[in-house]
Design a protein around this nucleic acid. Structure first.
Length: 276
DNA sequence: ATGGCAATGTTTCATTGA
């Protein structure tokens, strides 16, 4: 009898060992056209399973779908000329289904959200508006847009317990996510109003994968191109991979790939990765 | 007090980003 239980246990252990590790990334590429060589290198080097891209600045007819397929990735995309644009890439062995562009019942001319299901995980790729300055028209748009996103995520979570929201949130959630909290206090990306909004996303039952783990201080995802911002590590942590409660037990790491910000023609954002 | 850098298209400057 005990042998029988041993076999059961062994089968269970093997099943756990075989459970695929998933690397899910968010990366604001600041022009997919310019960043394509770096993206292809990065895919080869890091082998992520799902990648949420922001600021592709790429019309759908010009999306490098074929090149990515040759590199081993399927893609779905929602773009426009000059500004914004989002896309989701998935390793070719995983079909991309239930693709949704934009937010239902919200006629937003800016392409900022795309969602798809990959390997049983509902993946929502977001590019939250920048907001420019508190009190500006663009700030109002940011806040209204975030309220719409909140409702969208609430509905999505009800339908898909295994949910990831990844992208450029343009919000540094806490002072420890800012290189100089006093200089940035109350400024765009760091204001209380924006931070309350970010916490309202978390209170839906989402977790900041980066903060599920012990992290070194002064870890950021964006650095200004000007004034040697990256060299001096004068950055902000504004790109995030949020995961739902159902995915939290299997999350084993949350990282920022600072290396990708180095070298020739980097994006001003580094990729953020959650490992599940 | 302002700009600094990078990308885009309205291109040799204005706009936007964060």
């Amino acid at each position: 009898m005990s042998f029988f239980f041993f076999v059961l246990y062994a089968l269970f252990a093997v099943k756990n060992l075989c459970k695929a590790i998933m690397k899910i990334a968010a990366w604001n590429v600041n022009s997919l056209n310019v960043r394509l060589p770096r993206l292809l290198d990065w895919l080869k080097k890091q082998s992520p399973d799902i990648v949420c891209l922001q600021e592709t600045k790429c019309e759908d007819i010009r999306f490098p779908h074929e090149v990515l397929l040759e590199a081993g990735y399927r893609s779905c995309f929602y773009g426009q000329k000059t500004y914004n644009g989002v896309a989701i890439l998935a390793r070719q062995d995983m079909p991309i289904t239930e693709v949704c562009c934009g937010i239902e019942d919200y006629d937003d001319p800016q392409a900022r959200v795309i969602a798809a299901t990959v390997a049983g995980i509902r993946t929502v790729c977001v590019y939250v508006p920048n907001g420019q300055a508190l009190g500006s028209e663009k700030f109002e748009y940011k806040m209204q847009w975030c309220r719409r996103l909140h409702r969208y995520l609430q509905e999505a979570l009800a339908q898909y317990p295994k949910l990831v929201v990844a992208g450029d949130f343009n919000i540094a959630p806490e002072d420890r996510d800012v290189h100089d909290p006093d200089a940035w206090r109350g400024q765009i990306l760091c204001s209380d109003e924006e931070r309350v909004m970010f916490r309202s996303f978390l209170s839906l039952g989402l977790f900041d994968s980066f903060r599920l783990f012990e992290q070194p201080p002064n870890m950021f995802t964006w650095w200004d191109y000007r004034q040697l911002g990256f060299i001096k590590n004068r950055g902000l942590r504004i790109d995030h991979v949020l995961i739902s409660e159902a995915l939290r037990p299997q999350c084993v790491a949350g990282t920022i790939d600072r290396e990708e910000r180095k070298g020739e023609k980097p994006s001003d954002h580094a990729p953020v990765v959650a490992v599940l």
